[in-house]
């Protein structure tokens, strides 16, 4: 049973998150953009996340291919295997698994870095130097995540399908031409749009929650640890829950 204090804290947290989002909007349209910060974050979020995202994409594609093949082989539908991998990776597994990996790596780093800055008075120092923390710290991180997430997702999907293809054709003996033909036939461009839109929204959730948890960190090392854990847990849950609703919504938009 949810107690009253917990509910109040949850609602006020939601309110503060909305205020942060509004402040980000205000900053985007009225303040000078911090290009240096954006490029640094693009390097950290985009470039440095590639290895973990590629490994995740590759092994997910291969295991999905293997499992699907084992079932489809029983009903002699081997060449449809890769099409299942492709559709699943584009619209569901690619964006969700990329988001979970980015939440673990980037969301945690944002909460820890901003949280440490908060408890060591560096955020206050920024404010005394006439710099709004949202302009300098949050906006570059958020925009970099919004740009990087779709690109990372495309990479994960491509490597997932590619790995599935190599496994299926090279090891399991699937027919290369039919497999590829079914991939092209059944992977609609809408599946790709769905994946990219989901990735962008997941990126927004991860960066927003990571920055929010960091900026609202209280206490010393314990507080930073708590904020970091909460950032990963909340953004992962948000990704998984919003994925369900986005699937229903996007299915209406791209039937």
């Amino acid at each position: 049973m949810v107690n009253r204090a917990g509910l109040e804290s949850w609602v006020s947290g939601l309110g503060r998150l909305t205020l942060l989002l509004m402040e980000i909007g205000k900053s985007l349209f009225t303040q000078k953009f911090n290009w240096d910060g954006f490029m640094q974050q693009m390097h950290f979020i985009g470039v440095k996340s590639q290895s973990v995202v590629l490994i995740t994409g590759a092994f997910t594609g291969m295991v999905l291919c293997a499992q699907t093949y084992f079932q489809f082989h029983k009903v002699h539908m081997d060449s449809a295997t890769l099409a299942v991998v492709s559709v699943s990776m584009c619209s569901e597994l690619g964006p969700v698994l990329t988001a979970l990996m980015v939440a673990g790596r980037v969301g945690a780093a944002m909460a820890a870095e901003l949280g440490t800055m908060k408890v060591t008075e560096q955020i206050d120092a920024l404010r005394t130097l006439a710099t709004h923390p949202v302009d300098y710290l949050v906006v570059p991180r958020l925009l970099a995540t919004l740009v990087a997430m779709p690109l990372l997702t495309i990479e994960a999907v491509a490597i997932g399908i590619g790995s599935g293809y190599v496994l299926g054709v090279g090891l399991l003996g699937m027919d290369a031409a039919y497999s590829w033909a079914f991939v092209v036939k059944y992977t609609d461009v809408n599946e790709i749009y769905t994946g990219i839109i989901k990735a962008t929204i997941f990126g927004l959730c991860i960066a927003l929650i990571g920055c929010y948890k960091g900026l609202n960190c209280e206490g010393g090392a314990e507080g930073v640890g708590k904020s970091t854990t909460e950032a990963v847990v909340y953004s992962s849950i948000t990704v998984l829950m919003s994925n369900f609703f986005l699937t229903l919504l996007l299915n209406r938009i791209f039937p």
């Binding site: 800055m117 008075e121 120092a125």
Partner: peptide
């Protein structure tokens, strides 16, 4: 509001107890 305070704070310089340098 915080953004109006930024203008006022440009009159101030502050040395923090921990120095609060950006790591």
């Amino acid at each position: 509001e915080e953004r109006e305070l930024l203008r006022v704070r440009s009159k101030f310089g502050m040395l923090f107890q921990s120095a609060a340098l950006f790591d």
